[in-house]
């Protein structure tokens, strides 16, 4: 069965996403990284479904997809406003509140 290697791949992708999230300063890239992480989770569910021969994993994938769509739309709205107000997408520039 391929489910276990698929899970390993999912973990690797998740890790890559996490590294991207931490290493990129541009909010857009961070969002991309998050997409990768969500995808990794989706892959893990599919792998689980494959392991148990169930459709539940696939269904979960569908819901993750929905989330990703909804979330990206909100996120991009915020990104647009950010670029209007701050004139940058550098995540480290948004640190007016701290302490």
């Amino acid at each position: 069965m391929l489910s276990t290697p698929a899970l390993v791949l999912a973990m690797m992708l998740f890790g890559l996403g996490l590294i991207g999230l931490l290493s990129r300063r541009n909010v857009l890239y961070m969002l991309l990284s998050l997409e990768i992480m969500l995808n990794a989770a989706a892959l893990a569910f599919i792998a689980g479904g494959a392991r148990w021969g169930q459709v539940d994993g696939e269904i979960m994938f569908l819901f993750i997809l929905t989330l990703a769509a909804a979330e990206v739309s909100v996120a991009l709205g915020i990104v647009l406003q950010l670029s209007y107000r701050f004139r940058t997408l550098d995540a480290d520039a948004f640190c007016e509140m701290k302490g």
């Binding site: 996490l18 931490l22 480290d92 007016e96």
Partner: peptide, 17 residues
């Protein structure tokens, strides 16, 4: 400790990781 609250979201993500 309040120095750890830098306001940098990437740092926050790093602490989570």
């Amino acid at each position: 400790m309040s120095h750890t609250q830098t306001g940098h979201v990437r740092w926050y993500a790093a602490t989570i990781a």
